[in-house]
């Protein structure tokens, strides 16, 4: 794994991506230290343009709230939603896909019909409806994104499991009398993790985008400052105060781009190896 990390860092795109993401994580973690005041506090003069007041380098919004503080606190929401919802989707997708792929037959048919059912619903609309029904909060957003994102994971894991199940080392494990749980968790699962990891990294990016879109539409957690919310709230004043939507928009674009770079780097590092393994 260490050699993989090293190879990842040698990919310039991935290296830049990791550097920027680490920076975002640090800012998110240190937000309460960097900006001890709540991001909602109306700290300055409303509509203060950026680069005019050193206290508010990125300006303030229509209620005098610090844009920079909003970005820092928004990073927490974006990262939490991105990572936790992806984790939910992966746990759900790996569990269902693994069971379907390992046992096959009726379990496979049933689970894949369920998966297809979820896949036929437009994911964003589905997430939006769920958030609306559950009433908007960070938990309901995480849950909604998690629930709409698992089907591709399930399909991927199912395919991997189905093919690995026929591999001789798994057959050997069955013949040795290892339990199903042990075979699934110890023998097969570790071998499916590379593609899942790659998919997961890209899912984090799309979860961040989905959260931003939900918040943009006003269905975000009303008590959490988020990038999507900042854009949504400033959309109406975009002609008077471009900076209010520009900076959060820029941050979303950058973070999503960086995650994609890292994801592609991971793909290059992890998946050829998997492909090579397949050859006898």
């Amino acid at each position: 794994m260490n050699s993989n990390l090293w190879r990842l860092l040698k990919d310039p795109g991935a290296a830049i991506g990791i550097a920027l993401l680490v920076a975002v994580v640090v800012v998110a973690a240190l937000a309460p230290v960097l900006y001890p005041q709540d991001p909602w506090s109306m700290a300055g003069r409303p509509f203060l343009p950026p680069f005019t007041d050193p206290q508010f380098p990125l300006g303030t919004d229509m209620m005098g709230r610090d844009i920079a503080a909003g970005l820092a606190y928004g990073a927490r929401v974006s990262l939490i939603v991105g990572i936790v919802s992806t984790a939910c989707a992966i746990v759900l997708g790996v569990t269902l896909g693994g069971i379907a792929g390992y046992y096959g037959g009726l379990a496979d048919d049933a689970l894949m019909r369920v998966t297809e059912f979820f896949q036929t619903i437009p994911t964003f609309i589905f997430a939006l409806v769920m958030v609306a029904i559950l009433s908007p909060s960070i938990l309901s957003i995480i849950l909604a994104i998690g629930i709409v994102s698992w089907p591709p994971v399930a399909r991927l894991v199912r395919a991997e499991f189905a093919s690995l199940r026929g591999r001789e080392f798994v057959q050997a494990a069955i013949a040795l009398g290892e339990s199903d749980r042990h075979i699934i968790l110890r023998q097969i699962l570790p071998n499916t993790l590379s593609p899942v990891l790659v998919m997961g990294s890209l899912m984090v990016a799309s979860a961040i985008l989905t959260e931003a879109a939900i918040s943009f539409l006003g269905l975000g957690d009303p008590n959490m400052m988020s990038w999507g919310y900042m854009i949504g709230a400033s959309r109406t004043v975009i002609r008077q105060a471009w900076w209010m939507s520009f900076f959060p928009g820029l941050v979303i674009v950058l973070v999503v781009l960086m995650i994609n770079l890292v994801g592609e780097g991971l793909n290059d590092v992890l998946n050829p190896r998997l492909a090579r393994k397949g050859r006898a």
């Binding site: 939006l128 409806v129 609306a132 943009f216 539409l217 006003g218 269905l219 949504g232 959309r235």
Partner: peptide, 8 residues
């Protein structure tokens, strides 16, 4: 309508 309020 769900989104009328958001009007986006």
């Amino acid at each position: 309508t769900l989104l009328a309020g958001a009007s986006a």
